[in-house]
Each structure stands twice: as C-alpha cells, then as structure tokens.
C-alpha cells in the first residue's frame, strides 16, 4: 500500500505516496479555442526552467490548434516535508473536441480558466465556462468549490486598436458569481502568466493540504 488515491465524490484526484512522501497533482488550463492556453504553457516552460522536470508535449493540428492536450511536468520541491509534483495540461478548446476535453479534465485538482479579452470572443468565453461547469458536474465536482483562477488574456491587443472587453465587463460576465481571483495577462509577452499559475498552485496546494493533512 502506501499510495492513496483520493477519489471520493467531489474530492480531489491527487496521488499521495505516503511512504515516499510525494504528492502529484493535476492543473488544467481551460478556455475557448485560440484563447492562449498553449501560449501560457509555452511561457511557463521557458520561464520556469528550474521547476520544469521534463519536456513540454504538444499535440496540435495543421492549423496549430491543440488536438488532444499539451502536457508539462513540474516539480515544486519539498513543501511541508512532502515532494510536490505537478502535471499541467491544457484542453483542446474548439467545440468539436468536447469529448477529448472531458477526458483531459478527469481527475483535476485545480483549474486556470483562460478567457479571451477580444470583444468578438465574448460569447465563446461564456460557453466555455459553462462547459467547464457542466463537465466538472459530470465528474461530481463543483466549479464553486474547485481551486479556480481566471485569466483575462490578450490584454496587449488593446494597443493594436482592436476592440477588447474591459476588465470590469469580463468580471461581470465571468466572475460575478464565482468571485475568484482573476489576472490580466498577455501570454505572448508573459505578462501575468506566472502570477496566474502561482495563484492556482497556491489554492490547489492549500486545498490538498486541507484534504490530505500531509504535514502530520
């Protein structure tokens, strides 16, 4: 024995190896197609070399959209005497990949929802957030209880003269009920990417620590 899979209804799916004192948790980047989930991960891969423990794997199509998922393994070192490893995934955001998206979501411990700031993508953000809520529900999890962070990506496009939504509008659209921490970001430039991930990791680890009591 020694490996505990916390898979009770509505709880987490992190793997806790009691003997080795290792925890492996799963963070998923969710959001509409072309919102910048993969770009977030690419930046994390480049900027957090010290924490990255393996190659980033991307499976994409000819059109450069994520096909199945992107995957990036990270190690956070020892926290409260436990070695914490993190598997980061992105889901394919396009409508037609809904079944794959659901498969990738399974067993997650924390979510970063990446919203597209472009005004023309407003409806897609709403549909994707609803899709996340529904998929979590089908796995017995609740969007209001899962560690969740919102990221308003592509803020830099305001400088290009294209219509983007104000942060206030995005908060009203996406965060009025959730009331979770949100960050403005530009994944291509790296702005806000680290903060978003750090906050998600923090919330996830607090939540897991509460659940697993691993320092005891």
């Amino acid at each position: 024995m020694g490996v505990a899979h916390l898979s009770q209804r509505g709880k987490f799916m992190a793997i806790f190896n009691i003997q080795k004192r290792e925890i492996e948790c799963k963070i998923v980047y969710y959001g509409p197609g072309r919102c910048g989930k993969t770009t977030n991960l690419e930046y994390v891969f480049k900027a957090f070399k010290r924490q990255v423990t393996g190659e980033m794997v991307s499976v994409d199509t000819e059109g450069d959209s994520t096909l199945f998922f992107d995957f990036l393994p990270m190690g956070l070192g020892k926290i409260n005497g436990c070695d914490v490893r993190v598997q980061i995934f992105t889901v394919p955001g396009q409508q037609k990949y809904s079944s794959t998206r659901k498969l990738v979501l399974k067993g997650l411990d924390g979510v970063v929802f990446v919203a597209d700031s472009l005004a023309v993508r407003r409806e897609k953000n709403l549909i994707s957030l609803k899709d996340l809520q529904q998929n979590l529900k089908e796995y017995g999890q609740s969007i209001t209880r899962i560690p969740l962070v919102l990221q308003y990506n592509k803020r830099d496009l305001a400088d290009e003269g294209v219509p983007i939504m104000s942060v206030e509008q995005m908060e009203r659209d996406l965060n009025r009920q959730l009331k979770v921490t949100s960050f403005e970001a530009s994944a291509t430039k790296g702005t806000g990417v680290g903060k978003t991930l750090q906050e998600c990791l923090k919330l996830t680890l607090i939540s897991l620590h509460k659940e697993l009591q691993w320092s005891k």
Partner: peptide
C-alpha cells in the same frame, strides 16, 4: 479535419501513461 487522427507511437504511449487510471 478529423477530430481524433492517429498520432505517433510516442504520443500514444504518453496518452496511455497519463490517462489510464492506476489501480492496485
């Protein structure tokens, strides 16, 4: 375009490793 085209053996092995529930 196909939703799930066949991918390389390397990716297929990764899919198996990452998404098959480990059961004791």
């Amino acid at each position: 375009s196909r939703v799930n085209p066949e991918v390389s053996g390397k990716v297929q092995n990764l899919i198996k490793r990452l998404f098959t529930a480990s059961e004791e």
